[in-house]
Nucleic acid binder design. Structure first.
Length: 492
RNA sequence: GCACCGGUGGCGAAGUGGCUAACGCGCUGGUCUGCAAAACCAGUACUCGCGGGUUCGAUUCCCGCCCGGUGCUCCA
């Protein structure tokens, strides 16, 4: 099964296959670590996670490199405000970033590259550009890329260069560039500012050069796929292409994938709109990381996703249904044998799932056969027509689904505990939703004890007491389910 | 202004030139249950923004319009 993925560069759906026939080499732009990540950031990382997980599910080997921008204007500004060097400022946000990725079950790339650890490679690249006449130094010591030296500029974003020039606002600090469109490769610094002493002078790197230098370092001069948020297409990726290809004269990446921005409540997310959420904000409001994951990946990556709390509730309920089903499937005792209709349904669901995913990662479409199978299996179980041999077939389909979606496997309580611990440590307890505190108030042992007491009361047909316990638990966010195999409980 | 994307049931969201317009959530009724929960069954868009056109036939293709969003500037 080969993935057909929309390629920004070609403007059409192309099959995504490794050029060397063995391993898919991909580069994805990572975070700038000046603050906690917000859900917009995470939508992009989640969609890239969906991509790499699906590729792996189809048996492909993946080498995925992600950069971390740990030096830029915002970082320098924030670190200065905090009165510490950037090397002390960024680690806490890098750590937080990975904690958040873990919470959202975003797999780690095979390699992670920090900008500040690759300054030498960037300088080297700038020197090579200068040797080609594609880079020049201005009076204050800064280096710029000469756009005139790269006629193909704009091929990714299909930009009309003349239009850009007309519409471009010229940065007052950059008045001595040859052309308004030329962009910074290396920025000179004033004494006391974060800088590196290098053969091309004292200064710090421009933003775009790090990705060119590091992708070359880890993936070579030309690789299979480059991915990122849609906003990066221009100018960031366009500039990367200009920098890399001016030196190598080879395509930087054959395939380009761009994830659409998300909206929050129908508006672009921004701090001034008051609709800006970090992952941590949502966890403290009581939403589960799994629900956030599902909500963010259920709309295909090329579509605008409107993020709402209603959407999170929907995702929460959908996950609940999947997990309840999984639990029923795993814990029920079935008669030996197999049933033909279930075997057929399981195979059909699996095929439909793969086919939807292979069609430009259509996650919305891929969900459907899973829920179809769920209903078919539940119906069979209700009618006593489900056999032990069917269990593995259905579980296998769920496993394939979860190899990409990863929401059936439950780890939310543990994540919630961590979020609460963080809130305390960060002094943000006031933001914790009361329902969340209630939900976590009882330990598993306390819940088990009450459940046992209720079962006892039921045996004695003391339904008053039994219902009282059930109500008490429900008030604390614990839902009970009676079944032939005993009582199951879960936190809402 | 230029460019791009979208407008499908109460909400989210697939999809196709012609089979009953997926799937999820929600809601209503029913079955099951001591009662619930879970699950299942039934109902919930005679219709896919509006107006033209192409076609034997369009939600799906073309044109125009309206509405929403995004990009053109740091931004996932």
């Amino acid at each position: 099964m080969t993935l057909r993925l929309f390629n920004t560069l070609s403007g059409q759906m192309d099959e995504l296959v490794p050029a060397d026939g063995a391993e898919l080499r991909m580069y994805a732009c990572g975070p700038t670590v000046y603050d906690y990540g917000h859900i917009g950031n995470f939508r992009t990382f989640l969609e890239i996670d969906v991509l790499r997980r699906f590729l792996k599910l189809t048996g492909m080997r993946v080498r995925h490199v992600m950069n971390i921008t740990d030096v830029d204007d915002k970082i320098i500004r924030n670190a200065a405000a905090a009165g510490i060097p950037i090397g002390e400022y960024t680690p806490r946000y890098i750590e937080a970033f990975f904690e958040d990725l873990d919470a959202l079950r975003v797999e780690r790339p095979e390699a992670i590259a920090r900008a500040t650890e690759h300054i030498g490679k960037m300088v080297e690249l700038i020197q090579r550009l200068a040797a080609n006449g594609a880079a020049y130094q201005v009076e204050d010591g800064s280096w710029y890329f000469r756009l005139a030296a790269f006629p193909e500029y704009g091929k990714l974003s299909k930009k009309d260069l003349a239009g850009i020039e007309d519409g471009a606002r010229v940065d007052l600090d950059e008045y001595d560039k040859d052309s308004a469109r030329d962009f910074a490769l290396w920025k000179s610094t004033k004494p006391g500012e974060t800088s590196w002493e290098t053969p091309i002078g004292r200064g710090r790197p421009g933003w775009h050069i790090e990705c060119s230098a590091m992708s070359m370092e880890y993936l070579g001069e030309s690789f299979d796929l480059h991915a990122g948020g849609e906003d990066l297409m221009f100018p960031h990726h366009e500039n990367e292409i200009a920098q890399s290809e001016s030196v190598t004269h080879k395509p930087l990446a054959r395939h380009w994938m761009h994830v659409r921005f998300l909206l929050v409540d129908g508006r672009k997310m921004s701090k001034s709109e008051g609709n800006f959420y970090t992952l941590r904000d949502l966890l403290l409001k009581g939403y589960k990381a799994s629900a956030i994951r599902l909500a963010l990946i259920s709309v295909p990556y090329r579509h605008q996703l409107n993020f709402t709390f209603e959407g999170l509730t929907e995702a929460t309920n959908a996950i609940d249904r999947l997990r309840t089903f999984h639990q029923r499937l795993s814990t029920t005792n079935f008669e030996a044998g197999e049933s033909e209709p279930i075997q057929v349904a399981a195979h059909a669901a699996r095929a439909a799932f793969f086919s939807a995913m292979a069609n430009d990662l259509n996650t919305a479409d891929a969900r459907a056969p899973i829920f179809d199978l769920l209903r078919t299996a539940n119906t069979a179980m209700d009618r006593g027509q489900f056999r032990a041999g069917d269990r593995d077939a259905v579980l296998q389909v769920l496993a394939d689904f979860d190899a990409v979606f990863d929401v059936v496997r439950d780890g939310d309580d543990e994540l919630t505990r961590r979020a609460l611990a963080w809130a305390e440590q960060a002094g943000r307890q006031a933001e914790v939703a009361p329902e969340l505190l209630a939900r976590m108030a009882l330990s598993d042992e306390e819940i088990e004890k009450l459940v046992a007491e209720r079962t006892q009361a039921k045996k004695q047909r003391n339904f008053g007491r039994a219902d009282q316990i059930r109500k008490e638990l429900l008030d604390k966010g614990v839902v009970l389910e009676d079944s032939k195999e005993g009582v199951r409980w879960k936190r809402k």
